[in-house]
Simulated scan of single mutants.
Amino acid sequence: MSRPDLTPPPPSGKRLSLLNLPLDVVTLEQTLDRLGDWMFRAPRAPHTVVTLNPEIIVQARTHPEFVDAVQEADLVTADGVGIVWAARQLHRQEVPRAPGYDIVRGLMERHGPELRVFFLGAKPGVAEQAAQNAVRDFGVQVAGVHHGYFDPAEDQRVADLVGASRAHLVLTAMGAGRQEVFNQYWRQVLAAPVLIGCGGVIDVLAGTADLAPAWTRKLGVEFIWRVGLDRKRWNRAPRLVQFVRLVQVERRRLARQG
């Protein structure tokens, strides 16, 4: 139930501006409906999807190409509770979450054997395992596989490889910033109807990273759970603090404007 002092989610289609980045107010089900339509619509046309989280907002402030990639994305969903909180603070708007893992899993569950997926990212060998598991669990077709550890000089070679695969869905998991910029810059060459920057989703599908417990995901605090247990993520905690400060400063600015 939404709080009485907040505006409930409007029908799919409204786009907010959150610290100069777009955010589409869409539920997970609306997201899956829209992406399913894009994937199988004729003629084929590429669409980029960004799952927005606090880290993306903080990192993008010093990376103009990253900002452009998010602003030009066809769909930007709220990945985590931090984005939901920021929308409440700055817009008094209730925004539903559509996290990257839930989007990817939902598309595979819905479309199964008719879905051609290209697994692009993670360390060598991980994408192959993710593809095998996805075939086993969802019956999807593997359009192609490539690790995410390649230099920018190889971008066109990899983009050409993806484009030749005729994938419906490309899972690009090369880390925030790199994956979004790659998808946006090469979208016409990649040519897949849905290109989604999905961070650690390939690792989760491969079984090399654990999905956060259901209770943390239901409450939207899975990132806090991950940071607390994984030393490699501790350096990301300051970005959360910076994000909170950015939201507070923006809220005060909007209050002064009346």
Rank of each mutant, 00 (worst) to 15 (best):
Q179L: 15
D210E: 14
A86P: 05
P64Y: 10
A86F: 15
A176H: 07
Q184V: 01
W186T: 00
R97C: 09
E29I: 05
I57V: 15
R34Q: 13
P113A: 15
V50C: 07
V84A: 13
V201S: 06
E72K: 10
E114H: 08
V25Q: 04
E72I: 01
A237N: 03
T62E: 15
N183Y: 03
Q71S: 12
W85E: 06
W225K: 09
T27P: 08
C198K: 00
R231N: 14
R245S: 11
T48Q: 09
D5L: 04
V135K: 00
H168E: 05
T48M: 13
R34F: 02
D210Y: 02
D24P: 08
W225V: 03
V50W: 00
R245H: 07
M174C: 05
W85L: 08
E250L: 07
T216V: 14
D24S: 10
P10Q: 09
N20L: 09
P213T: 04
R136C: 01
L19P: 12
L161M: 12
A153Q: 12
E65T: 15
H63D: 12
R15N: 04
E29R: 00
V135E: 03
V194F: 09
L205N: 03
F182Y: 15
F182M: 03
L75V: 12
N133I: 03
L254E: 07
R187V: 12
R187C: 04
C198S: 12
T77P: 06
V158H: 04
A209Y: 14
P22H: 09
P124E: 02
P9F: 01
E94R: 15
N20A: 14
A69I: 14
E128N: 04
V181T: 13
G106S: 05
D203H: 11
L246S: 02
M174G: 01
H63W: 04
W186Q: 02
D203L: 04
L171R: 08
G112E: 11
P22V: 10
H111F: 14
P8W: 12
R251H: 06
P9N: 09
A159R: 07
W38H: 02
V194D: 08
D155A: 14
M174T: 03
W225M: 04
I83C: 07
I83L: 09
L6Y: 06
E222M: 06
Q89H: 05
R110K: 10
R34Y: 06
R187Y: 10
Q184H: 14
D151N: 01
F40I: 10
A176F: 02
G228I: 00
Q132C: 11
P22A: 09
V104D: 03
P4E: 15
R253P: 13
W85T: 05
E222S: 06
A45G: 04
L211S: 00
M39Q: 05
N235L: 13
S12L: 05
R41P: 03
A42E: 10
N53H: 14
L28Y: 10
T31F: 03
V241W: 13
F223C: 05
V204K: 01
A214Q: 11
